[in-house]
């Protein structure tokens, strides 16, 4: 079975490296595509070179991003028929109430605060991978419009 892609939307190279490390440490072998700002994330889905048949298993979405914010990306994804059901996990630094509320209001599937402690981060990524890459069932390719 072919492993589905993970789309990591992250502007901080440190966080990018640590997330990739955490995935590797947890033996998550899925290909990871990195979008380094909100616009790149939108281009991945809607840009001229976008391969619309690419449906990442999960989008790991940071909120504070250059150009287009994470919440704006989420809003665009939920507003488009092609990406309405795309699993999106907000993975960000803060747990400011307004971010959590807005995240869920705009249709996030999950909200995870990146722990400072790397061991805890590792554990968070392990559970995340287990849930979204293994346990969770999505409508098949044929079921998508």
């Amino acid at each position: 079975m072919e492993l589905k892609t993970i789309l990591l939307v992250e502007d901080n190279p440190d966080d990018e490296a640590l997330t990739l490390r955490a995935l590797k440490k947890n033996n998550i072998a899925n290909e990871v595509t990195v979008a380094r700002d909100g616009q790149e994330a939108l281009d991945y889905f809607f840009g001229t070179n976008a391969a619309m048949n690419l449906t990442p298993a999960v989008v790991l979405l940071d909120l504070k991003l250059p150009k287009v914010s994470g919440l704006d990306v989420l809003q665009r994804l939920r507003g488009d028929e092609r990406t309405r059901t795309q699993p999106v996990v907000i993975l960000t630094s803060s747990k400011e109430e307004q971010d959590i509320v807005n995240g869920y209001r705009l249709g996030a599937n999950s909200y995870i605060r990146k722990p400072v402690n790397f061991d805890q981060f590792l554990e968070a990524v392990r559970q995340l991978g287990l849930y979204w890459l293994v346990l969770n069932e999505m409508p098949g390719q044929g079921g998508r419009p």
Binding site: L18, S93, S94
Partner: peptide, 21 residues
Amino acid sequence: SYSVSHDLRAPLRAIDGFSQA
């Protein structure tokens, strides 16, 4: 405080994560 909660923690994650690495 929004900026503190977002931006001050990110470098800490790097310090902790790369120390662990």
